[in-house]
């Protein structure tokens, strides 16, 4: 079967016509859309459905793949604020780093980032029935990682040095954060607790790590065998003890 490929030159283009072109290409049955010369255009793949693959060359603007439901977006460069925001399904692969609030309120699909992410990564990710969002960060993450997390899987591989995140999992009430190496207790926020990674857990995350390694051409074996810290909610009701009734 022939792969239908559409190329769009985004140079100097506003995001609305750009997104219209991407949408039209996908509606017309394109399997792959290549967007070149992207510089700061926001909302690429926003609300997009289907199963096409969008290749983004350059630095896209914020809210990449927001509300996206199905497609794959591959960014050959860094991304901005909140890629994967409130995303439902599909996959975002970023070959660079990304800004703050990555995967904010994401409900399903995968966001893979080779480099680092900023503050509040994975904030309020949540899961529902078969939908379980996965965020994997190759580099390090910043403070308030997994804040308010209500579901899903967040892995930080810390491939390039020491994790900077503090206040990890503040208000977490669902899901799990798995960080390669040890995490100092002082870096955990109230409401989060460390538990050992069981063999069962290891089996569960293995396919995710393999997929991540595959996407970025890394050797999965050292990652599969590494030590990990698993962080889960101390309670499903982090704020229950704060209130009384009139």
């Amino acid at each position: 079967m022939m792969v239908k490929l559409v190329t769009i030159d985004a140079k100097g283009m506003h995001y609305t016509p750009l997104n219209q072109q991407v949408r039209r290409a996908v509606e017309d049955g394109a399997d792959e859309v290549v967007v070149q010369n992207v510089l700061g255009q926001r909302f690429i793949g926003d609300g997009l459905k289907g199963d096409a693959t969008i290749h983004v060359y350059g630095v896209p603007g914020g809210d990449l793949a927001m509300f996206m439901s199905g497609p794959t977006v591959i960014v050959h460069g860094n991304a901005e604020h909140a890629p994967g925001n409130t995303m439902d399904a599909g996959k975002v692969v970023i070959h660079g780093s990304a800004g703050d609030a990555v995967a904010h309120s994401m409900r399903g699909g995968k966001v893979f980032i080779r480099g680092n992410i900023g503050y509040r990564g994975g904030i309020h990710m949540k899961q529902y029935e078969a939908q379980r969002p996965i965020l994997v960060v190759g580099g390090s993450a910043q403070t308030f990682l997994g804040e308010y997390m209500a579901g899903g899987l967040l892995i930080v591989l810390d491939l390039d040095g020491a994790m900077k995140a503090r206040g990890i999992g503040s208000g977490i009430h669902g899901g799990e954060i798995i960080i390669r190496g040890d995490v100092d207790d002082a870096c955990l926020a109230a409401g989060a607790k460390k538990v050992p990674l069981t063999d069962e857990d290891r089996r569960r995350i293995a396919p995710v790590i393999r997929e991540f390694a595959g996407d970025f051409g890394l050797d999965p074996e050292p990652l599969l065998n590494a030590d990990y810290t698993r962080i889960v909610p101390a309670s499903a009701r982090p704020f229950a003890g704060k209130y009384t009734w009139e």
């Binding site: 409900r107 949540k126 899961q127 209500a150 579901g151 009430h173 669902g174 982090p238 704020f239």
Partner: peptide, 12 residues
């Protein structure tokens, strides 16, 4: 709401 049954729904 698309969240698991019985879990708190927290709006920051």
């Amino acid at each position: 709401r698309m969240i698991p049954q019985g879990s708190d729904a927290i709006s920051p």
